[in-house]
Design a protein around this nucleic acid. Structure first.
Lengths: 122, 122
DNA sequence: ATGGAACATCGACGATTGTCAATGTGTTCC
DNA sequence: GGAACACATTGACAATCGTCGATGTTCCAT
């Protein structure tokens, strides 16, 4: 009845969400780091998920109810739910339960970390 | 006998290599743009390909002979060749034939374009 | 022309992915 | 309690992917 916002548990350890940070151009990427980084980029490697990210980023407040993501993306509810889970597992997106609804938001630091990985050789 | 550097034909139209440019945070990504963008991120969504990118970026001169990419990555020659093709198809990498050898290099503008797509809301 | 070396392509294989209908879980309201 | 709604999970399917050995192809040297 309190019905306060409840951040849902992250499915992946936030520590290894993105393996973190040195640009590809700084030093040859070791195999282990490559694996978790690849999972993050892989999460962006689908048109539906890219559009979900864009919807989240352009929404004011930076949050969108899952219910408002199904129609604009043009896929079934289970499919959208699946893609949101992939984004969550990759550590790119957070989910917050507010009553019956669940609000999604991108985690800006994680996206910034991916940007950093692609940075050129200063 | 001239044996000059020969840039191999790009497999994809460079025009739609990355669909180009407005950040995800600027406006909701249309479905068509999402598709070609997804292919680029998807190309980065594999550990071997990320390591290849890193090897190319860290090499001085920014170019590496394909023969020098097989061993550090620890995969068979056909597998490495396949991954290089994926990166080429995504428009992220260029190939230049010099005699018997083929030299690969990342295309910095394309990587920068991906970075731009991930840019936050100014 | 012949041989060899560098790289690409083919064919096959198990593994992963995107999708949906059906069903399950959790919450709110009456 | 029970009905109704929001969302997740399951199970199934075709499609795509990563990998390798075998085979082509292209170039250089002899």
């Amino acid at each position: 009845m309190t019905s306060v916002a409840t951040t849902l548990p992250l499915l992946t350890d936030p520590a290894d969400a993105v393996a973190c940070c040195p640009p590809l151009s700084a030093s040859p990427l070791p195999a282990e780091a490559a694996t978790s980084l690849a999972r993050a980029f892989s999460a962006l490697g689908d048109p539906v998920r890219l559009r979900l990210m864009s919807l989240l980023m352009t929404a004011d407040g930076g949050q969108v109810c899952a219910c408002d993501l199904v129609e604009p993306v043009g896929k079934s509810q289970p499919t959208v739910s699946h893609h949101l889970k992939v984004l969550r597992d990759a550590g790119l997106v957070s989910a917050t339960r507010r009553g019956t609804y669940i609000w999604y938001a991108v985690i800006p630091e994680q996206v910034a970390a991916l940007r950093a990985v692609l940075a050129p050789t200063a």
